[in-house]
């Protein structure tokens, strides 16, 4: 299975593609049989003794034995530990209901902010944006968010300040933006200074010195989803010449 997976790395797979064990007809007596281990990431699913592809995209591999499908989906599925941008939709009792773009709304306790106590409630209004982290994200349960890390610090999370623009991009682009030494980010750096908050749920918040610049950054990011590096750099250069 490992070799057949390895063969397909970098190729486009579609749901329904399968990987099976190759039945070896001879068993060597001298070597002890090593059990093959494969760690399946998103888009690969075990079904009996086979491995079934459940998303369309490019097969990726991380040594030694991690495999996953890199897809361009837009619908977010919560996963524990991921940081997202949410919109507060309701205040009910001691929790906020937060929309993160998944099938279900997440809950965010008002105590899960830095320095919040029963007395000292955080100032969050309906419609505000929060940058938060999933602490519970199970299949059949309501996901739960927090705005503090393990030591009770905000660590960059919390309620957003005024201004800025929120927009949606594909989850693939978000991951590329967040990757270390991201080339899109490097290209953007060269353009003009802007504040960027990237949530793994595909939401990006951007604030720049003027409305015009904010709009330019937002439109650039939305358009460079399916561009090659050369196309993107050409576009960025054009913008730089036109805007500055």
């Amino acid at each position: 299975m490992f070799s057949s997976l390895k063969e397909k790395v970098g190729q486009v797979l579609v749901p329904g593609d399968e990987f099976g064990f190759e039945a070896e007809d001879s068993i060597s007596l001298t070597e002890s049989a090593k059990p093959e281990r494969v760690v399946c990431g998103p888009g690969l699913r075990r079904s009996g003794d086979r491995l079934v592809v459940s998303k369309s995209g490019v097969l990726r591999h991380k040594p030694p034995h991690c495999f996953w499908i890199e897809s361009q989906q837009r619908r977010y599925i919560p996963a524990k530990g991921e940081t997202v941008i949410g919109i507060v939709t309701a205040k009910s009792g001691d929790v906020f209901k937060v929309d993160v773009g998944s099938s279900e709304q997440a809950s965010l306790s008002y105590l899960a902010f830095e320095g919040a106590t029963k007395r000292n409630r955080p100032n969050v209004q309906v419609g505000d944006l929060v940058f938060a982290q999933f602490i519970i994200a199970n299949k059949d349960m309501e996901p739960e968010l927090v705005c503090i890390d393990g030591s009770g610090r905000a660590n960059g999370m919390g309620v957003f300040g005024a201004g800025g623009l929120l927009f949606k991009v594909s989850l693939g682009l978000v991951r590329r933006l967040l990757a270390p030494h991201s080339d899109i980010r490097a290209d953007l750096d060269r353009l003009f200074p802007c504040e960027l908050v990237v949530g793994l749920n595909g939401r990006v918040w951007v604030r720049s010195s003027s409305t015009q610049q904010t709009l330019i950054v937002a439109n650039l990011l939305q358009s460079c989803d399916t561009m090659t590096a050369a196309q993107r750099q050409q576009l960025f250069r054009k913008v730089q010449q036109g805007a500055l």
Partner: peptide, 8 residues
Amino acid sequence: TPLSNCER
């Protein structure tokens, strides 16, 4: 998806 205050 609700519209956030910031977008408005």
